[in-house]
Design a protein around this nucleic acid. Sequence first.
DNA 1: CTGTTAGCGCATTCAC
DNA 2: GTGAATGCGCTAACAG
Lengths: 334, 334
Amino acid sequence: MQPKLKDIARELGVSTATISNVLSGKGRVSDETRRLVSEKVRELGYRPGGAGRALRTGRSGVFGLVLPDISNPLFPAFAQAIETAAARSGYGVLIADSHGDPAAQTDALLRMIQRGAEGIVIVPCRGTQVRDLPLPAVVIDSASSPGNSVCSDHHAGGRLAVTHLQELGHRRLTLVGQSRRSSVQSDRIGGMLAALRSDVRADIFWLEDGAPDFAALVHAGTTAIIATSDLHALTALTCLQGAGVAVPEQASVMGFDDHSFSARISPGLTTLAQNMPEIAATAVEHLAELLDGAPRPAARIVPMALRLRGSTGPAPTDPHPTPYQEAQQGDVTS
Amino acid sequence: MQPKLKDIARELGVSTATISNVLSGKGRVSDETRRLVSEKVRELGYRPGGAGRALRTGRSGVFGLVLPDISNPLFPAFAQAIETAAARSGYGVLIADSHGDPAAQTDALLRMIQRGAEGIVIVPCRGTQVRDLPLPAVVIDSASSPGNSVCSDHHAGGRLAVTHLQELGHRRLTLVGQSRRSSVQSDRIGGMLAALRSDVRADIFWLEDGAPDFAALVHAGTTAIIATSDLHALTALTCLQGAGVAVPEQASVMGFDDHSFSARISPGLTTLAQNMPEIAATAVEHLAELLDGAPRPAARIVPMALRLRGSTGPAPTDPHPTPYQEAQQGDVTS
DNA sequence: CTGTTAGCGCATTCAC
DNA sequence: GTGAATGCGCTAACAG
């Protein structure tokens, strides 16, 4: 049985209020009693239980984290960063997975409220707009989505990616996204297009329409592939390598988000990393302010960072790298 | 303001206890009052708040999930499975990351207790023994670690891996682990060695000692590489592909855990998958039993499943696959 | 069968 | 400076 306030009070012959005062540092208590109490608290290993406190103060010290898909390889780093930031602020984190389903998302929210979460950090399902939450909430989505509180500068990330490749001399790019409905991916692609010089051509493929043959694209003239996720960049990279296309000598590949594997493949994957600790810290900080009754802070946009690794290099200068390329040139259109 | 029991009671002119009885289905209530109450509850959208209930019943409906490293690519699937299983049983999940640090692990445990967690599911830090928890706990580690409650059959997984490759005709294997201290990895390697036929040779590399040159190993005669994690298998695979070694024609590669990327690379990575839903369901089930006062259930070992993909194939039959191989044969020892 | 009462553990009044 | 009393929202035991 965990010791209660009452136990300590009885052992010391003081009242529970005094103990509470000592622990919270609020009411006036003599140094002597303070010392005595502190000692006893340490001795018995007393920790105020959350239930009583939550009931009395209305604050549970817990907030919810609602993710569309915990198993997405991007979220581990995110969840970790949030948990770390939350722990630093003395908060616990209740997780829920909406499985990309808006109904489940709503359900999860209700359950978190019921469990006493004081606020929530939510990464909304694609295409969902989080609105009128009965609870302070911090939304992490993309700069273009209404209600967003903090996110990476995906647009600038896209610009950085294209600029990087253009500086390496690439003039024929292939842009690969997964889903048009994802505002994050749209922002990234938008940024890429915005940075495009007039003498550079870019073709866009959406994987939801089917997977392209990356080797054929290279043989048709593409010299660089940018995927909106490292996962798809990895697919492209291994397809190319398996087909005998040298990376980065014959084609460069880059991705987004710096997944756990990106640094551990050969060649290392050049990628645009989100500053997860910064985003998480900002999210938790905003939430803490909201909980303290402050007005909603302005949305914060966190820069993305180019992580230069081996998968990108100078564009191939040979006008006819392989005979195969010439033969296939006319077959692939975009 | 969320409606409270008292609000409903007042509006209906009955007592709070009656409402509670209706909602819990316990005490005897007339059908008429029951109907009236149910209706009002729906109308006001009343949901019993967890704080009061937790204080009164001592059950918070929440348990803790303590992981050594949330950002490990294996845990997303795990956390998701646990969260799903927990939600199905009506539990919420509080997460904590011990960052592989035993002290932080203890700290996290204390915080979960303070927050009112009824029990915990813990994947202990490497080398840590979880013991004498002041709380019902389910430990997920490896069959060889004391106190383990449920885990995959890593040893059998190792045996399956080696058997698979032996059946494909491979006679020179390279086994790659990360850390000797990991009981999971030791079990896997142990299983591999146990399944080894007398005419098959296996060399073991531990990455904590430094990374091997996979292409050189193949040129020295290895025809198959088994890594204890898909992450390292991926490293091997891309190194080989980058060095012009065809997978699986010249060398087979396989891993463990079926990470998110494993099916999406080319060739697909043959791997041994853990049955996460099963493990998670068992863990939650055991925990629920413990919370109901049942004695500790016997440890459960869940089989691993071979996911056959393109990265493994028949051993190369050509005795002299490349001139280079002959030249290098003597240079690499193990 | 139903309603009243008491108290879970804590922080906060307000007397002393 | 300290302690006794109060009530947060809920449910289990007990009266009616």
